[in-house]
Amino acid sequence: METGTWKVKAGLAQMLKGGVIMDVVNAEQAKIAQEAGACAVMALERVPADIRAAGGVARMADPTIIEAIMETVSIPVMAKCRIGHFVEAQALEALGVDFIDESEVLTPADESHHIWKHDFKVPFVCGCRDLGEALRRIGEGAAMIRTKGEAGTGNIVEAVRHMRAVMDGIRKLADAPQDELMTQAKEMGAPFELVAEIHKTGKLPVVNFAAGGVATPADAALMMQLGADGVFVGSGIFKSSNPEVRAKAIVEATTHFQDPKIIAEVSKNLGEAMPGLDIKQIPVEELLASRGW
């Protein structure tokens, strides 16, 4: 009997596919998320929209909050650590969380190095903006990838940009002749073995969710049609006027992403979505997606 193997780490991500992972800040929200059909929750002290508003240094959540959420729901509980902060990750592993998100939403602890995730038995998910970044994280041991989008904005535009970039990168590698792969690896800054694997299989070796800006059922279905395996919804649910109804609608739209009639139906009477932000109005130094490399 062996625990913490690559197969059980990447396998848990496979079990989340087709589902919605929701940010929650307390046990009550976690319950609402589970009730709505979320396949996992992300336990946080603040949702990204509030982190953005608060400014300052954003860190791993208080373990008391994470434990209260773990005790309340039966679905997997994820928690975030800062980029490169392997001790926060060790602490989260000790708490027994099911997945760690090494996340650009928190203030990075290391601007040059991400965590060496192969050292952990708990699986990690990491953000990316393109295929090269995705493959660097997988090379370090991420068992799941998510496109970054721009968290806390309620604006899907960056999520779309990043998902298209990843998918485009995969198509290019699949079509590239064998003798161009090393140059591709060099230009992408990605491990050659993973570049060669994608050339062969035409797909990422791990699950890839969309994140950062999903606010409506149609947003979720858009990301699924662009090739996401599932979606993270951060501020989009609990910053809206009717979280219960919106959460359930986003879950249904993610499952039935190819069925426009169902998407239209579940989009009715959801109340106010979270207030959105125009990415162009955000000062460059406040963009979260550019954290990490």
């Binding site: 009997m1 062996e2 625990t3 913490g4 193997t5 197969k7 059980v8 396998g11 848990l12 079990m15 773990m70 997997p76 592993e93 027994g96 969380v97 099911d98 997945f99 038995k121 708990v122 699986p123």
Partner: peptide
């Protein structure tokens, strides 16, 4: 078995599938 940290792999004897053990992947 508990949370993800208890997820495991093991070889399972399954008579109806023949002599070779079956790879059992247990995730939560």
């Amino acid at each position: 078995f508990g949370r993800q940290k208890e997820s495991f792999e093991t070889e399972l004897p399954i008579v109806v599938l023949g002599e070779k053990p079956f790879p059992g992947i247990f995730i939560r």
